[in-house]
């Protein structure tokens, strides 16, 4: 039997999450793995927005910031359990994306890029300036999710690193599953259609503005959940999570890996999360090397790393 692309992607992903720890030389790598998964969740949202629907956002870190600070603030001020705070953050991000996206997405071209840039900066400024609430640039503590303790009581004793590795891995698998469902669904097809030709999409009855808005809201929720998970596993958060560099990082990860495919984007997230770890040796030149790697990939592998590599491998096989 031939595997569908969706099942194949999910299987590869599950195998990666489950089997990678065999190769980990120390517990530290669980933490790196969890970071990769957290980034990959946000990047999966970018794949839906940019890869499926062809829209660019330069401010998605703003939603990550909302998700992160929801987990820091809502338990303290509203008495919510951190897990519900994650849901609240996702809801707030979705609503803000809806309100901001609605007027912008009626316009054509790069308005979304510019407007989201503004939104990201706005969120980051609020987080930096509302010191009394957020602690400003110094950041603030985030309460414990509490799930690891429950698992321990139930007889499953994981280290903190192991717990977050598997928890974020599961969240990523869930996020990828949703995105893959969407790809081949009526909504996903309509998104890809308007990416291909907006005028043709409109004449087959696709409400282009509405569909773009849906993609924008969905991707904002992915970014928000990613921010929440980052905050919860670090138990500490600073406004950097909402910073412009983080937005650019998300887009770069997606484009680097290949924005058209979920697995490619996750691969991009892995490479760009690992690279700075490797490059700490040349800490001073980190930005320089990163920029150089990115330029080379864009010039020589414009489709993204993974699709280009796969094509080369297949080409040799034939």
């Amino acid at each position: 039997m031939r595997l569908s692309a969706k099942s194949a992607t999910l299987l590869v992903l599950i195998a990666l999450v489950a089997l990678s720890p065999i190769l980990f030389p120390s517990g530290y790598y669980y933490r790196v793995g969890a970071l990769i998964f957290v980034n990959a969740i946000a990047v999966t949202g970018i794949v839906i927005l940019t890869g499926y629907a062809g829209q660019i956002s330069l401010g998605h870190a703003g939603f990550a910031g909302i998700g992160a600070y929801a987990c820091a603030l809502a338990p303290v001020h509203l008495g919510l359990h951190p897990s519900l705070a994650l849901v609240l953050g996702a809801a707030i991000s979705g609503v803000i994306a809806f309100l901001v996206g609605r007027p912008i997405l009626r316009l054509k071209g790069y308005y979304l890029g510019v407007a989201t840039l503004g939104l990201g900066i706005l969120v980051s400024m609020v987080l930096n300036n509302e010191r009394q609430l957020t602690g400003g640039p110094d950041g603030m503590e985030v309460p414990d999710l509490g799930l690891r303790g429950l698992l321990k009581d139930a007889g499953l004793d994981l280290t903190n690193g192991q717990f977050w590795y598997f928890f974020c891995g599961l969240a990523l698998i869930l996020g990828a599953w949703l995105a893959l469902n969407l790809y081949n669904s009526p909504t996903g097809r309509a998104l890809r259609a308007l990416h291909g030709s907006e005028v043709a999409a409109r004449t087959v009855g696709i409400d282009v503005a509405q569909l773009k808005l849906r993609a924008f809201v969905i991707s904002a929720v992915y970014a928000s959940v990613s921010g929440s998970l980052l905050a919860l596993q670090n138990k500490f958060i600073t406004p950097d999570v909402a910073g412009f560099m983080h937005s650019i990082e998300m887009v770069t990860m997606a484009v680097l890996g290949g924005v058209g495919s979920i697995l490619g984007a996750i691969f991009g997230a892995a490479v760009l999360t690992l690279l700075p770890q490797v490059l700490t040796v040349f800490a001073e030149y980190e930005q320089l090397v990163l920029g150089l790697v990115m330029m080379l990939v864009m010039i020589f592998l414009p489709q993204g790393l993974l699709p280009s590599i796969l094509r080369k491998v297949r080409g040799k096989g034939e």
Binding site: L178, L182, S185, P186, T187, A193, V204, I206, I218
Partner: peptide, 18 residues
């Protein structure tokens, strides 16, 4: 299939959860 958009479209959550 995209020509069938008006007939095949439905709630986006149903599409996400397959």
């Amino acid at each position: 299939i995209s020509g069938y958009h008006l007939k095949e479209r439905g709630p986006v959550l149903a599409d996400l959860f397959g």
